[in-house]
């Protein structure tokens, strides 16, 4: 379990948002949504320990969970001469002792994960030469080979074409169903996030808005319109949600 109680997040001791409370139970699939620059990445980086909270603490039930982090793929330099396999194998580095080389088990684990994700054939290809969707899946394989308790994804479908987006979302849905792994996913488009997540976290630092809870409670036209400062329409059809924005500004 991950728990934030009355936490302030921000950089260099300057709070961006105050009084945030959130409880993530094992096996939850959280979608974290909000407009650009809303503080989504800051929140996630605080949870995984990359940024200390300005006020308060991030608490864990028992030991600190192992996080499998999937950054935005644009954040990675294209200069490194690394293959897809090299990048995926990095997921095991956190578990190696200092000076230890990856064992046969580490190599096998990485190959298996690449195979599972459908990329075994291109494991030896330069990472930089892969398509956007393939790179994203390699980064997911890297996160998964670390045997994480919590998978954290920062806009995994950003910049992908429609089939690429669908593949990633389907993969995540399947992964969550099979392994019951806890997932925190920052999503650019709420309409995509609501298709896979069971909990929502709405965040907008400019409006000092933070809401977190089960999907059914939070996915209301009023809350989303407040979040995006636009009129948002939510329709529920055959058990799934459809979210769309209207052009006019929300009062």
């Amino acid at each position: 379990m991950i728990e934030l109680e009355d936490v302030s997040i921000g950089y260099c001791k300057v709070p961006l948002m105050n009084h945030l409370s959130l409880t993530v139970q094992p096996g939850d699939f959280w979608g974290i949504v909000g407009p650009n620059g809303a503080g989504k990445t800051t929140l996630v980086k605080t949870i995984v320990g990359l940024i200390p909270p300005v006020i308060g603490k991030v608490r864990f039930d028992g030991r600190t969970p192992r996080f499998g982090y999937v950054p935005q793929r644009y954040a990675l330099s294209s200069q490194y001469p690394l293959t897809a396999f090299d990048v995926a194998l990095m997921g095991r580095y956190g578990q190696l002792r200092i000076g230890q080389r990856p064992t046969r088990h580490d190599v096998k684990r990485t190959r298996d994960e690449l195979d599972r994700i459908g990329l075994d054939a291109i494991a030896g290809h330069p990472f930089d030469a892969l398509s956007g969707g393939q790179r994203q899946r390699v980064l997911m394989a890297r996160a998964l080979v670390s045997d994480p308790d919590v998978l954290v994804l920062d806009e995994p479908t950003s910049g992908l074409d429609l089939p690429g987006e669908e593949d990633i979302l389907e993969f995540l849905r399947q992964l969550h169903a099979d392994r019951k792994i806890t997932v925190l996913m920052i999503g650019h488009h709420i309409s995509k996030v609501v298709r896979v997540a069971d909990h929502l976290c709405l965040i907008n630092k400019d409006a000092q808005l933070f809401d977190a809870g089960p999907m059914a409670e939070l996915l209301t036209e009023e809350r989303l319109s407040h979040l995006y400062r636009r009129t948002i329409q939510v329709q529920r059809q055959d058990g799934s949600y459809h979210v769309c924005a209207r052009g006019n500004e929300h009062e």
């Binding site: 192992r66 996080f67 499998g68 490194y80 990095m90 580095y93 956190g94 996160a143 670390s146």
Partner: peptide, 11 residues
């Protein structure tokens, strides 16, 4: 190569 992911995995 990837300071954020390395940091998140405890390095």
């Amino acid at each position: 190569y990837d300071p954020d992911t390395a940091g998140a995995s405890g390095i």
